[in-house]
Simulated assay, not measured.
Amino acid sequence: MSETAFEMFVSLVLLLGGLLALAFRKRRNPLIGFRVGYTYHSERAWEKVNTFAGVFSVVYSLFLLALAFYGVSRNIFTLGVVGFVIIQLFIGLWMAKREYELDELSEEAPEKPPATGKTEGASIKPYLLTQLGFLAFYLLLVALLWDRLPERIATHFNASSEPDGYSGRLWGVIGVPVLVWLLPLVLTLPAKEPAFFARANFYPRNLGAWCLFTTVLSCGLVSVFTLTLLYNVGIVPSNVISYGVYLFLALLVFAIYRLLTVGGDERV
């Protein structure tokens, strides 16, 4: 599949998703739409948020189609897609919480489901600061080693620890790592709002354990990017990256184990 065809495919998938969100904006369901605890609890929140999500997705998909026809690089297109995800996520969550609270204050509000008992959020500030510290350390290292980096750097390695994927210096050592680092950060934020998980198929029994899991994920990802950076300046051999990945996976398994076994009142 050519680069333009791939970009058009992604844009059309986004367009279809937006149309489906609009079609189901008045019918709560477990498959289609902006589905978080707030929208499950309130018909008003479901309709308002999914109307926004549908319209925004349709409009943004047309923008992405225009980029694809114009022939922008995949890096620029990817940044556009990431921008869509971040904007829709944050605005959608803000709208969902706001509409849910307005619904609760309304005299005409429907009867709410019984409380689950999980009403207090976790203190996420230490975890967020730790994750920010990981990124700051990595970016400091990038700044110190920038002049030693080649214009094209290795960004992917096969099972034999041999590089088989390359990228430009700016995108490879800053663009991709920062975008990937955002994933665990965004996953940490819902721990402050337990209603985000309410009525979801997965609800962590201990929100502190959830934050530990996302922080370990952040640490592992930054560690792998750091080893890749050191490889590209000739400080470490490529097989060290493989060892780093194995260690990261082991720590991640431990964090998942704690997530699944720790009790709701236990300290992490």
Rank of each mutant, 00 (worst) to 15 (best):
P163T: 07
G220T: 14
P184C: 07
K112G: 01
A53I: 12
F63R: 01
I87R: 07
L187M: 14
V49A: 11
V268Y: 02
S160H: 10
R98K: 15
L259S: 04
L260K: 00
F197R: 06
Y100I: 03
A195C: 02
G92S: 10
A250K: 05
E7M: 13
R28L: 08
I256K: 00
L93D: 03
I241V: 14
V253L: 14
L182M: 15
F77T: 04
Q131S: 14
G17K: 00
L135V: 12
S57N: 07
W146L: 09
G263V: 03
L22H: 08
G121N: 01
R28S: 07
A191R: 02
L182W: 10
L31A: 12
E7W: 04
T214L: 08
A45L: 06
K125W: 13
R148F: 15
F213V: 07
G121K: 00
T228L: 06
L132E: 04
E120M: 08
A255E: 02
L229D: 04
L102A: 04
W181F: 13
F52Y: 13
G18S: 10
T51E: 10
L212R: 09
L15P: 12
P163K: 00
I174E: 03
P194Q: 00
A115R: 01
G71C: 13
F56G: 11
I86R: 09
T155M: 06
P150S: 02
R199G: 00
Y127C: 05
N29Q: 08
F225E: 09
L135M: 05
F157I: 11
T130D: 02
Y231P: 11
S167G: 12
F225W: 10
L141V: 06
G208T: 09
V58M: 09
